[in-house]
Simulated assay, not measured.
Amino acid sequence: MTTTLVLGGVRSGKSRHATRLLPQDQSVTVITPGGKPTDDDPAWASRVAAHRAARPNGWTTAESSDVTRGILRARTPVLVDCLGTWVTAIIDAAGAWDDREKATELVTTATQELVAIWANAPFDCVAVSNEVGMSLVAQTASGRLFQDLLGQVNAQVSAVSHRTHLVVAGRVLDLSDAPLVG
């Protein structure tokens, strides 16, 4: 089976591209590891609703920060959208934004578990993530922590993926054969 990591900046078209990589006429499990939309953030609720509406009929959504368990439980191809919200959810759940060491340990452990499953996925899996070098992130301690940890997650997932794509302004670059940097 094929695993693909799709990277891109905010509103780059990465989720749209990721959706096209999976069967349109079959069941697909969509794992959304971020917080559920609430009335407190209507913009987020609108984005989530737009993503759901754009997905083919028959695709099911599982909102869970436990991406590894979600992949293990799925019996269909999987779309994980998005690893950036997954990293945020891990840090949020532990209240670890002010404890770099704890946040790093939690995300590292979760990433090791994800990579072990990802490398041997029994069906097609696509993960979407923000390419942290292309995203606007506040240059605060929390912002730098997020960038560092998500950058590490992206590198590790990419290293065991069959394909890695970068989406910029709706254009797709296949980075699968590009050499890995230390």
Rank of each mutant, 00 (worst) to 15 (best):
E101H: 05
A119P: 06
L83S: 04
S46P: 06
N120F: 00
L72Q: 15
V6L: 11
I31M: 05
P33N: 12
V6E: 13
I90A: 01
D174T: 07
C82P: 05
A127S: 13
S46A: 10
L173H: 08
A18I: 08
T88K: 00
D174P: 14
W86P: 02
W44E: 00
D174V: 04
V160D: 01
V48K: 08
G182H: 11
Q156T: 11
I91G: 03
Q147R: 15
A141T: 12
V168R: 07
V167P: 10
H162E: 10
V67M: 04
V172F: 07
N130G: 08
R47V: 13
A94I: 01
V67T: 03
V126C: 09
R144F: 00
K14Y: 09
L21G: 05
G133Y: 05
V181K: 11
A138R: 03
G84A: 12
D177H: 12
V30M: 02
R100E: 13
Q156K: 15
T68H: 00
D98E: 14
G170R: 10
T76K: 02
G133V: 14
E63T: 00
W44L: 12
G35R: 13
L166W: 02
S161M: 14
D174G: 13
T111M: 13
R16A: 15
A89F: 02
A141M: 04
T38H: 05
P77Q: 12
A43P: 00
Q24E: 07
S27Q: 14
W59A: 01
D124G: 12
D92W: 09
R16H: 12
D98L: 07
S12I: 01
D41C: 08
N57D: 15
A159H: 12
A141C: 11
D41S: 11
A93C: 11
G9A: 15
G151H: 11
D174N: 06
T85H: 00
N130L: 03
S65R: 03
T3F: 10
K36W: 06
R171Q: 09
T108Q: 02
V153I: 01
T76S: 15
S64L: 01
R16T: 15
D25S: 15
S129K: 07
G34N: 14
S135E: 14
T108C: 02
T60D: 00
R144W: 08
Q139P: 07
L180H: 11
C82H: 04
V10Q: 10
S129R: 08
V87N: 01
V115I: 09
A93L: 11
N130T: 14
R163I: 14
N154Y: 04
F146A: 01
T60C: 06
G170T: 11
D98I: 03
A93V: 07
M1R: 06
T88W: 01
H162K: 12
A127W: 03
K14W: 04
Q139I: 06
L173R: 05
D25P: 03
L72P: 02
V157F: 09
